[in-house]
Amino acid sequence: MRTLSALDTFIGHVDNALKTLVPKASSSHRANPALTQTAHEMSAQEQRHASGLMRINHTGEVCAQALYLGQSLTARLPEVREAMNEAAEEEVDHLVWCEERLHELDSHTSILNPIFYGLSYSIGALAGAIGDKWSLGFVAATENQVCKHLKEHIQILPVQDQRSRAILEVMLEDEERHAATALQAGGAVFPPLVQAGMTQMSKVMTKSTYRI
């Protein structure tokens, strides 16, 4: 396998950023789970609420893309670097599904996505530089945070919005697997204080992207 040069890596990461941030620039490998569900009428308020929740989840996937790519940049072990790249590819499905659902709801993705992408990329690169054990542990902790949001959103979505619910249920299954895989690969379990700090940071993202 050919070793990528620094320029190759840079171009690949820029390409990922554009595909993540530009609407309809990415395509999923799996069929959208929403297609298995019938669309039901919702009130204007219910539609706004569903849109806000799906916008949060879309931004979460934007952050996941940036996090994994940033970590792959500085990961020391080749197998860890490859695992980060594979995880990022799997998250593309989630990104596309959420974007498609937002379009169906006549809504939009968050205008804050470029900011969150940049922050997440930097955090991922820093985590990777500290060491693969902590980098993988950060993946597990982050995925656990995502799972908490997904479980909550599944519960508070409008009852008739089965299309959004179908997407979130598949995402939850994937994210739980990613977290378990990171720990099995040798990721460190973060102490409660650190996890609490991550929870507070995630609240900033959720509250800001619900509407914008």
Rank of each mutant, 00 (worst) to 15 (best):
I111N: 02
A182M: 12
G52R: 11
Q37K: 15
G128C: 06
E91K: 09
H153I: 05
K148S: 00
Q160D: 14
E79K: 11
C98P: 04
H58V: 00
A141T: 10
N32H: 14
F116G: 01
E79A: 11
M54R: 06
E173M: 13
R76I: 03
L102T: 05
L77S: 07
G186H: 08
L119K: 14
Q47A: 06
N144M: 12
G70T: 11
M42E: 02
S110E: 00
S51K: 06
K207V: 05
S51W: 08
F116C: 00
E91C: 04
I156H: 07
D106W: 06
L168I: 09
G137S: 06
S26G: 03
S202K: 10
M205T: 10
E100D: 13
A66N: 04
A34I: 07
I167N: 00
T109Y: 02
I212M: 12
N16H: 13
Q200W: 10
L18Y: 12
T209D: 03
A88R: 15
L77H: 12
W134N: 10
A64H: 04
Q37D: 00
P114D: 02
T181Y: 10
D174N: 09
E46A: 11
T20M: 08
S122D: 04
S107G: 13
A31W: 06
M171R: 06
T38Y: 04
L35P: 03
P114G: 03
N144Y: 05
S43P: 05
H49Q: 08
C63E: 08
G52M: 09
H178D: 00
L168H: 01
L95S: 00
G187T: 05
L18D: 02
L53Q: 03
A17I: 10
M84N: 12
A141G: 01
D8A: 05
A25V: 14
E41S: 13
Q37T: 06
S107C: 09
C98G: 10
V139K: 08
R163L: 05
L193A: 14
G70A: 02
S110I: 05
S72N: 01
A196H: 12
H40K: 10
S43Q: 07
E90V: 07
S27Y: 11
V62C: 02
T199G: 03
L126K: 14
G137A: 04
E79P: 00
A185V: 05
V80R: 05
R211K: 09
F10P: 00
S72L: 04
T199I: 03
G60T: 09
G187D: 03
T36W: 04
D93F: 12
E41K: 11
L4S: 10
T38D: 09
A180N: 09
E91M: 09
H13T: 12
G124N: 12
M84G: 02
S72V: 07
S28H: 12
K19A: 15
H178A: 01
D93I: 11
Q71W: 11
G197T: 05
S202I: 11
E176S: 04
A83L: 13
N85D: 10
